[in-house]
Each structure stands twice: as structure tokens, then as C-alpha cells.
């Protein structure tokens, strides 16, 4: 079995938004909507401040509430590495999946179906990295199989301090941020 996920090095990310542009181009994401985005998270008290820049998207959760709440089975887990996808012509546009996502990673495509990051499954099936990973100029993004202990992503997680987003929501997100 494979379990695809991402590791993002926040020490390297500069928030250039190349990943955002690559995603929009690769997946023809409509105007004013984004499947991935940049967050700047500043914490602490001056002068002891800590800033984390990170690229965010659907976390392709292992315990995906968007899949469970879907009344038609449009939201589903793909056989290939647990990628969470939406079958467009099964989606009725009820928006339950938008409400169920603690990351607010989904949106309604102008054509009416729920849309979100697919980890560029059409590229992954060909053995390629998702578009955002492949264009990153600082090489801060890594895509791979967490079930393989020898994969680069597994090794990075084992060797570096990291965190995921809102793990307390219980969805088991599969994107990890190196700090």
C-alpha cells in the first residue's frame, strides 16, 4: 500500500507563490479561486518573534470527514495512495464537504461541483510530482509515500522537527511542516 503526502520545509519557503500559480495553470483553476495558498504565521512578542511561511492545500486526511459526509460518494479516497478526490458528475453541490473540512480547503467550482487540490493525481499516475512541488524554486516541498520508510518524505519526517495543521481536529492530515 502507498500513502501519499507532502513534507514542506518552512525554513526554505519564501512565500513566492510559484506553487499557487503552477496549480492554477496546471489544473485550470478558475479566477478568484485557489486550490493552494500561502500563509504567514507570526507569533511571539517583540523582539522574540517567530515567523513561519507555508504553502497550504487540502491535507488529504487519513480520516477524511469530507468523504464521510458526502451523500453521493462523489468525495472519495482514490486507490492510489489515499488521495482524496471528487468525482465531478456525482457531486450535487450540497456543500456538506465544505462545511466538514477544518482547513476550509474546498470551494465550489463555477460549474457547480466541489473542488480542491488533487495532489495533481493525473501527474502522480505518470510518476511525476504534483505541479506545485515540481516548480518550487527553493525546493521546500517534497511529495512521496509515507508508507515507505525509505522514501524522502519518511526520512525527512524522521529526522526533522515537524507539525501538521490542527491535528486536534482528528482528521489525520497528511501534510507535514518542517520547522
Amino acid at each position: 500500500m502507498m500513502r501519499f503526502g507532502m513534507v514542506i520545509d518552512t525554513k526554505k519557503c519564501v512565500g513566492c507563490m510559484d506553487c499557487v500559480v503552477a496549480c492554477k495553470t496546471e489544473n485550470d483553476v478558475p479566477e478568484k479561486l485557489n486550490r493552494d495558498w500561502i500563509v504567514q504565521d507570526v507569533r511571539g512578542k517583540n523582539p522574540d518573534l517567530h515567523m513561519e511561511i507555508r504553502t497550504e492545500r487540502c491535507n488529504h486526511c487519513d480520516n477524511p470527514p469530507c468523504v464521510y459526509c458526502c451523500p453521493t460518494g462523489a468525495s472519495h479516497v482514490h486507490d492510489l495512495g489515499g488521495i482524496v478526490l471528487v468525482t465531478h458528475d456525482l457531486c450535487i453541490g450540497c456543500k456538506a464537504c465544505l462545511a466538514s473540512c477544518p482547513y476550509d480547503a474546498r470551494f465550489v467550482h463555477p460549474e457547480g461541483y466541489a473542488d480542491k487540490c488533487t495532489f495533481c493525481v493525473h501527474r502522480v499516475e505518470k510518476g511525476l510530482d504534483p505541479a506545485c512541488v515540481s516548480v518550487c524554486p527553493t525546493h521546500c516541498m517534497y511529495f512521496g509515500d509515507f508508507d515507505d520508510p525509505n522514501s524522502q518524505v519518511s526520512k525527512l519526517l524522521a529526522s526533522r522537527k515537524n507539525h501538521s495543521l490542527i491535528p486536534e481536529a482528528g482528521t489525520k492530515p497528511q501534510i507535514f511542516y518542517l520547522v
Binding site: W37, V39, Q40, R43, K45, E56, L98, F107
Partner: peptide, 14 residues
């Protein structure tokens, strides 16, 4: 101080 900024502004979501 905690400051959180995002580039996302998706319709119906943000």
C-alpha cells in the same frame, strides 16, 4: 502577538 495572513480568498469560504 499572533498575526496570521493568508493569500486565500475563496468565494463562499473566506
Amino acid at each position: 502577538m499572533n498575526e496570521y495572513t493568508t493569500t486565500r480568498h475563496n468565494e463562499l469560504v473566506d
